[in-house]
C-alpha cells in the first residue's frame, strides 16, 4: 500500500499547495511533477514510475487527457481517468453523453460555420451565449443580446486561426448565476453559488465572481448523482444552472479549481481529496 502521489501540472497554485500540505495526514507523499517535461510514451519510462497514483491537475485542456492516456498505458492509476477527462474537456461530447442518459443539459446548437450560426440564431431565442467547445475559465464565452451584435461577433470567430478554435456552441442564456458542486469520489463535498460580480456578466471564479453559500438540497444531489453515475467516481467540479424546470448541467471540470468553493463553504476540500486518494490506493 504505497502512498506516493504525483500532481501533474505546470505549476503549484493554491489548490496544489493544499493537496501537498494535507497529504501526510492521509499517509500520502504528494509531489509536483512538471506536466511540460514528462516526455511520456515509453511504457517503461521513469518519469512517473515511482508514483503510486497520478493526479492530473494540468490547467491545459490539451495536456490533461493526453498525459492521462499515457500514464494509464504505463499502468499507473490516474485521477481522473483519461476517458473522463476526454469526456469533460469537450463540452459537446459531455452534453451528448449526459443527454443520452437523461441528465438535463441546456438546449444548444453546434456551430461550425456562418450557416450554422444563422440557423442557431433563428431557432433559439435571444439572449444567447456563444461558447467554444474546447476552453474554459470563461474565455471567449460571449453573451449575445441581439442579432446585429451576434453577426459581428461571429466575424471574430471566423478570424480565429483554426477550425478547432472555431467550433462553438450556441445556447440560451440562463441567467442568475450557477451552482458549483465539488464532487470527490461519488459524493458532493462542497457547494457554492457563483454569480457575476457586477463588472462582468460571467461568473467564473477565474474571472472574479461573487460566491455565496448554497444549501445542498435534494434536486442538486439528484442531478449530481446522475452525472457521477455516468462518469464514475472521481474529482469533479460540476456546474449547474437553475431553470424553471429544475437544474441543468452546464459543464463538468475534470481538474477543478476549488479555492472559491472551499473558502465559501468552509469545507477542507484538499483533505477530502486526500482521503479519496487513500481509498483508491487501498
Amino acid at each position: 500500500m504505497g502512498g506516493k502521489v504525483a500532481i501533474v501540472a505546470d505549476r503549484v497554485s493554491w489548490e496544489e499547495r493544499q493537496l501537498i500540505d494535507r497529504g501526510p495526514e492521509h499517509g500520502l507523499e504528494v509531489e509536483w511533477v512538471n506536466d511540460e517535461a514528462l516526455c511520456l510514451g515509453d511504457e517503461d519510462a521513469d518519469a512517473l514510475k515511482s508514483y503510486d497514483v497520478v493526479l492530473i491537475r494540468s490547467r491545459s485542456y490539451t495536456r490533461g487527457g493526453l498525459l492521462a492516456s499515457l500514464a494509464e498505458a504505463a499502468r499507473i492509476p490516474v485521477l481522473n481517468t483519461a476517458a473522463v477527462i476526454q469526456a469533460c474537456e469537450n463540452k459537446l461530447a459531455l452534453r451528448v453523453l449526459l443527454r443520452r442518459a437523461g441528465v438535463p443539459v441546456p438546449d444548444f446548437r453546434l456551430v461550425l460555420s456562418r450557416q450554422d450560426f444563422r440557423k442557431a440564431l433563428a431557432e433559439l431565442p435571444f439572449p444567447l451565449v456563444l461558447k467554444p467547445i474546447f476552453g474554459g475559465m470563461g474565455k471567449r464565452v460571449t453573451l449575445l443580446r441581439d442579432p446585429d451584435t451576434a453577426n459581428s461577433v461571429y466575424d471574430y470567430v471566423e478570424d480565429l486561426g483554426h477550425a478547432f478554435e472555431q467550433a462553438c456552441l450556441v445556447e440560451p442564456f440562463l441567467g442568475g448565476g450557477s451552482v458549483r458542486c465539488l464532487v470527490v469520489g461519488r459524493e458532493i463535498v462542497a457547494t457554492a453559488r457563483f454569480e457575476s460580480n457586477g463588472t462582468d456578466w460571467r461568473n467564473n471564479a477565474a474571472i472574479g465572481s461573487h460566491h455565496s453559500v448554497v444549501e445542498r438540497d435534494a434536486p442538486i444531489t439528484r442531478i449530481v448523482d446522475a452525472v457521477v453515475e455516468q462518469l464514475g467516481g472521481g474529482i469533479y467540479g460540476i456546474d449547474l444552472f437553475r431553470t424553471g424546470d429544475g437544474y441543468v448541467v452546464n459543464e463538468v471540470n475534470h481538474a477543478p479549481g476549488f479555492r472559491a468553493v472551499a473558502t465559501t463553504s468552509g469545507v477542507d476540500v484538499a483533505s477530502a481529496i486526500g482521503r479519496y486518494v487513500r481509498e483508491v490506493l487501498g
Binding site: R59, Y61, G135, G136, G257
Partner: peptide, 11 residues
C-alpha cells in the same frame, strides 16, 4: 520564466 496564461487553459 513561465507564462501567466496559456491559450488552452481551461480547467
Amino acid at each position: 520564466v513561465v507564462e501567466v496564461q496559456l491559450r488552452d487553459w481551461g480547467q
